[in-house]
Write a protein that binds this DNA or RNA. Structure first.
Lengths: 343, 343
DNA sequence: TATACTCTTTGAACCGTTTCAATAAAATAA
DNA sequence: TTATTTTATTGAAACGGTTCAAAGAGTATA
């Protein structure tokens, strides 16, 4: 089935391609009668002009960048997206957001689509699970396509903006230790997620830097979304008697922390009196939780803005720029879900 | 400043365009030496092949649709986006999301960009404030570009999927009246928003259908986002003595309801005992509020899916299809923020 | 040495529009 | 009636790549 082109329309209407083009573009040089004829033929044949061909000849001055997140629903990415958008808009760029839904195939496809669609550059939150495939990134480099990663990917030299997850968790744990907690547990996110692994590393580091030991049982993987985390947290509490419970739990993220808060209540453990709980990421609702959440505030907006800044700098540079690597610090926000342990 | 093209690279490297093209596309027919030469020239000149030109000749089989929301942060749109994405993916389409940020210019620009970038169709949540400008929609019709609106726009015949806001609020008010409430107030959203106006209409209708009168003071505009709603709600409660307070408040949306809940507490009004409060939209967090929120559940996922369904049907149809107009019902979910009034 | 292959590279044709100088037709002026 | 202007239409060139038959250069084979 062949595509219908402007030539088909011209032929059928008995006019030239130029005239059809003029009608499409609403030029006022075409006679009403001709316009009607052409329009009706277009309708009849359901003709849709091919945008790419139009753009080829036209000056195509549009400025746009693409963003590939891993999960649309995740407030983390929403906040980052806002940052990207704000900076980009300010510089006159529009943002196209897509979600890989943690599917590597999609990430690959999108990175291609962006350049095919003349989107000038991309900010990519890459899926990194162990041995990540990165040939699509090499392809982008080959065509000098500007892009910024939101996470470090081994094996490729590229612009990266990331948040120091290790440090962030370390500070939270430090705080708990300083406040007399020793029975601290870390609820990890998803086993394959690099975010999760980094946070586990931060948890471990905090202990080793205080010359305390961090045992295997102190890290429990319960998942990153509310529903699964809730179920697993219930299981966790059920499996031990009251005096076996930790005095503090360091959660992977805020949604998980909420689930833990809710699960704990079912076992009559009220934060912060019976148990201290910290979140991570400081999503918008964190301060509105039943117990306002002590959490780690990642500068998500700034995160997005910085990525956009680097990207646009690269887009606008006539020469190839050296890669940048920027690590942002998170900061700890003390609300009501943690307290000093009475000794 | 002229664009660097493949011809420039070919000339500089002393090879033909065809060879450069082969290098770009990683064809293995190119001698290593030649490949290196070309690659280095490409780097040196920071050459970025124009995607649209590439796609013109290639078979370009990519299937993608665009979504224009009005506000990225709004959970309402996030849920709709998920629905769109789910249906689209299932049909093999990718989704590009953009946000007009309630700026009409942007909406216009995006609707153009989509077709220019060979995105096959668009789902648009239009900005409708009074006399809305719609020539950009007419332009889309002119080129038979498939699109679906997420709200009715006067003056144009187009595919529309919408939610029956009027009916939704009516049911909520009905419920409150049936449960003995008479001193009911509606907190409206933003004055210009058509959603807000429809909800006000629903509020009015519920009263008139019960042959009760709905006075002007029963509708108070306090805004749709948490922060402003909170401030205005505080003001509202401050302005009247305890026995003047309504026994029930019908809120514009869930975020606003949360703000009202929080503000009410400050005046020692606890839902549902001292005051009944209903939300709208049933965002994910609504059931996790301090008091689980009685609200109106809009089938947002289905909303998005239906829009995607209609859009894709139009994209894939060889002939121009008649427009569709689909209205979805919302349903009322009773949780803990409302109760029967003791008479 | 001639012949057949293989490996590289070339360059013209093509993708589907827009653009614009040239032209044709119609209207107006002389 | 002819010259001039205005209005509408044409068609070839251009946009920036890809494609692929054909040619050229080496190499191995007979």
């Amino acid at each position: 089935m062949k595509r219908i082109t402007i030539t088909d329309i011209a032929k059928r209407a008995g006019v030239s391609k130029g005239t059809v083009s003029a009608v499409i573009n609403g030029k006022n040089t075409v006679r009403a009668e001709t316009r009607n004829l052409v329009t009706s033929v277009m309708k009849e044949m359901n003709f849709r002009p091919k945008g790419m061909a139009r753009n080829l000849k036209q000056k195509n001055t549009d400025k746009s960048i693409g963003l590939i997140v891993r999960d649309l629903m995740n407030p983390f990415f929403t906040s980052v997206a806002i940052g990207v958008k704000d900076y980009a808009n300010q510089k006159g760029y529009d943002v196209f957001i897509t979600s890989s839904e943690n599917d590597h195939e999609r990430e690959v496809k999108f990175s291609q689509l962006f350049s095919n669609k003349d989107i000038k550059g991309a900010i990519i939150s890459p899926i990194v699970e162990g041995s990540s495939e990165i040939e699509h990134l090499f392809k982008l480099k080959m065509i000098n396509y500007p892009f910024v990663l939101l996470e470090d990917v081994r094996g490729i030299q590229a612009n990266v903006v990331s948040i120091d997850n290790v440090k962030a968790i370390k500070i939270a744990v430090q705080y708990l230790i300083d406040n007399g907690h020793t029975k601290i547990v870390h609820f990890a996110g998803d086993p394959i997620s690099s975010h999760s692994l980094e946070r586990i590393e931060g948890f471990r580091k905090a202990f080793s830097e205080c010359s305390l030991s961090c045992t295997h049982e102190m890290i429990v993987t319960i998942g990153s979304i509310y529903e699964t985390a809730f179920i697993n947290a219930i299981q966790f509490f059920k499996n031990r008697s009251r005096d076996q419970h930790p005095t503090a739990i360091v959660c992977f993220n805020d949604q998980q922390a909420l689930a833990v808060l809710d699960a704990a209540i079912q076992f009559d453990l009220q934060a912060p009196d019976d148990i201290s709980i910290t979140g991570n990421e400081d999503i918008a609702f964190a301060r509105l939780f039943p117990v306002p959440l002590t959490t780690i505030h990642a500068p998500l907006n700034e995160f997005g803005m910085k990525a956009a800044e680097i990207l646009i700098r690269n887009i606008e540079s006539p020469t190839l720029l050296p890669v940048e690597n920027l690590v942002l610090d998170a900061n700890f926000i003390i609300r009501k879900s943690t307290k000093q342990l009475n000794s």
